[in-house]
Simulated scan of single mutants.
Amino acid sequence: MVHAHGVRRRVHVGDLRPGDHVCLLFESDEERDSILRDFVLGGLDAEHKILYLTGEKDPPGRDLLLDRCRLTDAAALSGRVDVLGLAEFRTVRGRFDPAALLRRLRGAVERTLAEGYRALRVAGDLCPLPGDERDLHRLLRYETLLAEEFGSRRALALCQYDIRRCEPAALDAFAAAHARSVEADPLVRTADLVVVRTYRPQGLRIEGVVDAGSHRCLREALRSVAAVRGEVRLEMSRVEFLDLGGLRLLMSFARARAARHRTVELTGLLPHLLQVITLIGWDRTPGLRLGAAHAGCR
């Protein structure tokens, strides 16, 4: 299945393993920082070393990563995290030099293994300057070389691209250079239910079975997006079963948002669930909006 911007398959950040080369197309600092935080903490737990690439002209060392990951314990990162400015890998004419960066990464991998770590984790914001086709081609060359280099399973890479700064054609090209995209770890992951925070659009993706045993988990997941200012979208195309108690939770969530002049949209509901909502009259719940599919099954 091909997703937006050509990315074929999603992987949770906590499921990344050495040898993976994935991308994150983000459009908010919240999305970037949340996934970066899990990427860093997962690396610390796995005894990996972390290298963060930044386009900042004067990167303030570990403080930048601490801030973006909302971490307060600088000592926990001591000796295990390096921050590298991408400006170091531009030629005298200001052009990005992918070969120079790759050589540095190759050396970093060798040092990481020599120091006794299991692998090197690399993450960084890599958007080219708007309209700079030459930098775009150099970055694509870098991505190709990186995929070949990191296939050795001695390192893993998370390449971040800011949708707000990159042109659509560039985003398509960068996404196509990666076999998978990364997304946040599930808020809920049980044998029967998975709930994942989404950012484009803001909301949740709900998969599996919602029954009496999972109401508490669903309620807590809904609370995690209660403060979202815009519309919250609940993507439910992979919901196999949703009991009346679960539906009541969704209706209560919609009414609570309506009280603050906000809305929630349910998308992808199976036809029989849409019929239940309509028969009960819950389709008129304040704050609730049903996706286009609902109109088609009336």
Rank of each mutant, 00 (worst) to 15 (best):
A226L: 12
L218I: 02
A179Q: 11
G203S: 07
D243A: 03
V196Q: 05
V239E: 05
L244M: 11
P201E: 07
V196R: 11
R216H: 13
I206L: 14
G246T: 14
H215K: 04
P201F: 08
E235W: 12
S224E: 02
R189D: 06
E207H: 07
L187Y: 05
L234P: 11
E235P: 00
C217I: 03
V210Y: 06
S224K: 01
F241R: 15
A175R: 05
P186F: 03
D192K: 06
G213F: 09
L193I: 02
L247W: 10
R205N: 00
V209E: 01
E240P: 04
L193Y: 04
S214A: 11
S181F: 10
R219T: 02
D211M: 10
H215E: 00
E231R: 15
L242H: 07
A191D: 13
G246N: 12
S237L: 12
G245W: 11
V182D: 05
R223N: 05
T198H: 08
V194E: 03
G208R: 08
V209G: 00
V210G: 00
R180V: 01
P201Y: 10
E220Q: 10
E220A: 04
R197L: 07
M236T: 07
E231Q: 15
L244N: 08
V194L: 00
S237K: 10
G246C: 12
D211E: 07
V225G: 05
L247E: 13
R200I: 00
S237D: 15
H215Y: 07
S224Y: 01
G230T: 05
S237I: 11
A184C: 01
F241W: 14
V228N: 02
R223D: 04
H178R: 05
L187W: 00
P186S: 02
R233Y: 12
T190V: 10
H215R: 08
V194Y: 01
R180M: 14
L247H: 10
C217E: 14
A191P: 04
R248H: 13
G208Q: 08
R197K: 15
E231D: 12
R197M: 05
L234G: 07
A179R: 14
R238T: 12
S181P: 03
A226W: 13
C217A: 12
Q202M: 14
R248Q: 15
D185C: 01
E220F: 01
R248Y: 13
V210I: 15
P201N: 08
V225H: 08
A191G: 15
G230P: 04
A177C: 01
L247S: 09
A212K: 09
E235N: 03
P201L: 10
V195Q: 02
R205D: 08
V232W: 10
R189F: 09
V195N: 00
V196A: 03
